[in-house]
Design a protein around this nucleic acid. Structure first.
Length: 259
DNA sequence: ATGGTAGAGTGTCTA
């Protein structure tokens, strides 16, 4: 294989956008696609079109919210739902469904949907920081393998990642604690590999024609271990996927690696 | 401060 192409996308319901997913795979010749907010149980997924294209699928989630999945045509082995230490880890009901990992073509890919946090004074905000701390703890043992933590981090690490910082003064995504939680991964030796190639936003709220006015956030990232990062040759945000009727509120982020 | 839109499913919740 000359190169490998990995993508991550908060699809905001896989069932309502299965046609867009299949078109995305075809358009960009994606080898591994990590999805978030699939909003479906594994048994609800429409798999025929994906299987016809040669893809394997692993998913976790319930029908109403959250949910993560991995779609791969380069192997899908050692699938793990959640990680040790994660809130809810060991619960057979899988109430959260925010993390699924698998080995695909020799790479360990984790599709992550970091808790939103809701409001800085909401208990869910504390839960978000706790979740990130536990992920960091688990990720310590993955860092020496070619691993990527991809998905919707629900954090804007810099002011450039917000269309209007003043408007977010009392909001989540930009607080010092959230930014510190993100920075902690970088301090541990992980690298965010998409920004250098494409600094653009990845999410635009459905409200108020935010996409048309390019008032977005950069919150979807590929956080790579050193042996993954050194193979990255390019990355881009597929903004066209966000345009028009029936789009997710996030755009896909695509990363290329040398073989 | 509020509300705007979208998706899960019929009650509201979540983002």
């Amino acid at each position: 294989m000359a190169q490998v192409r990995i993508a991550t996308w908060n699809v905001n319901s896989l069932r309502s956008r299965i046609d867009r997913v299949e078109a995305l795979l075809d358009r960009h010749e994606i080898d591994v696609l990590a999805l978030q907010e699939t909003k479906a149980r594994e048994d609800q997924l429409p798999l025929m079109g994906l299987q016809a294209r040669g893809y394997d699928v692993a998913a976790a989630g319930v029908s109403q919210w959250n949910g993560v999945a991995l779609i791969s045509r380069v192997g899908l082995e050692d699938v793990q739902i959640g990680f040790p230490g994660m809130p809810g880890w060991g619960d057979p009901v899988e109430p959260e469904a925010r993390a699924i990992g698998a080995t695909c073509g020799g790479l360990r890919i984790w599709s992550l949907y970091v808790p939103n946090g809701r409001k800085p004074d909401d208990p869910h905000y504390v839960y978000k920081l706790d979740w990130l701390a536990r992920l960091r703890e688990a990720a310590g043992s993955w860092r020496d393998t070619p691993t990527a933590l991809v998905g919707d981090w629900n954090i804007c690490p810099t002011d450039d990642d917000v269309f209007d910082v003043a408007q977010f003064r009392s909001s989540t995504h930009v607080t010092p604690a959230e930014r510190s939680a993100f920075q902690a991964f970088l301090d541990d030796g992980w690298a965010e590999v998409t920004r250098a190639h494409d600094p653009g936003y990845t999410y635009w709220d459905y409200y108020r024609q935010r996409f048309e006015r390019d008032r977005g956030l950069k919150i979807d990232f590929v956080v790579a271990s050193p042996s993954f990062a050194e193979r990255v040759t390019g990355a881009f945000v597929d903004r066209e996927e966000r345009a028009g009727k029936g789009a997710s509120d996030h755009a896909p982020v695509i990363v290329d690696l040398s073989a």
